[in-house]
Design a protein around this nucleic acid. Structure first.
Lengths: 181, 181
DNA sequence: CCCCCCATGTAACATGTTACATGATTGA
DNA sequence: TCAATCATGTAACATGTTACATGGGGGG
């Protein structure tokens, strides 16, 4: 039945739809505003992926009678099974290692290639943007704490912890770089 | 001159070659063993990318006279300029947000879909693998500390800090999940 | 002598993005 | 009624991966 293998993008969408039936547009908005936006939220990304899931009978579409254009998608029982199978897969070493951070790669390469000012500006930008982002996460945590399920809350806290420690690193790095002045 | 835009992969390779001239095979080994392995280290990934850089005159090839098959690549001055331009680019908000962690996504989706045992097993695997990986980083830090340039050292320390805090989170999450038992 | 690792390459494929296209709905 | 946003879609393209292919060199 399911000849074509599901990608991470497919599972990301399937998981969202399992939490809450949604339209393609709704999924796009989530990708646009949350950390899921590793993938583009553009129509060319989301709609073909949803249509693939539909063809595989992993999601079913129910047209909204109110707004005819709107298409609501629900995860089918087969889709739920696939999701469970994916979630139950063992943790691979690969998954641990493959967390790329393009900013850190850039920083690592800077050494003798850019001047002191560029390095300082880079770290200060990082600190400022991460602070803003972290505050957003914290605020969300404070207001939505009650409404979140355990796993959602823990994943959010993972993000908070991660940005906190990255901020700490950036401040430390700034000091180290400044010392060379 | 440079019509085609450079990708992250291109810059990752260019940066490595700037640090140290290398062969395609050498680059592959680095991708295979380090955190750079966000991309595949397979020949189909590395060789075409290097050839693209060569065609753009960003790297130059010098055949090793000893082993004729071996091709050593150096970054050209034009390549260095491109690298500097990339490193000097402002930090984008996108870059901050787009750090996806497939394991955390899976964890977030687990809530009511998998049973207690699967969740525990998942977190314990994560803890065990991250511990191993972190120890590798720490050992590398301890032995190579002296030989590393400042930015390389700081990037390594970034990795260490990140894994430390992720481990802390995983242990905390394990406790929270266990409490529900 | 055989196996493993060094070393390079390519063609077919999978995957996702950009840019374009269209029209409905809603609020100012 | 005008603009913005909701809402969906597709074709051409960019990008990287898988799987296949080839051969040299060194150690057991």
């Amino acid at each position: 039945m399911s000849k074509s293998k599901l990608t991470y993008l497919d599972f990301a969408i399937l998981g969202l739809l399992h939490q809450q039936p949604n339209t393609g547009y709704g999924i796009r908005k989530i990708f646009e505003t949350t950390a899921l936006g590793n993938y583009s939220s553009s129509p060319g990304t989301i709609y073909p992926a949803i249509n693939k899931l539909r063809k595989l009978n992993l999601v079913v579409q129910k047209s909204d009678t109110q707004a005819k254009k709107k298409k609501l998608f629900f995860v089918s029982s087969e889709g739920t099974q696939q999701l469970i199978a994916w979630l139950s897969m063992p943790v691979e070493n690969e998954d641990i290692r493959k967390i790329s951070n393009i900013l850190i790669l850039r920083f690592a390469y800077m050494d003798d290639l850019v001047n002191h000012g560029v390095k300082i500006r880079f770290l200060k930008s990082m600190i400022s943007m991460m602070t803003t982002y972290l505050n957003g996460l914290k605020e969300y945590h404070a207001t939505e704490n009650e409404n979140l399920k355990l796993h959602g809350r823990l994943a959010l806290e993972h993000g908070i912890i991660l940005f906190k420690s990255q901020l700490k690193w950036a401040k430390y790095a700034l000091k180290e770089i400044s010392n060379l002045n």
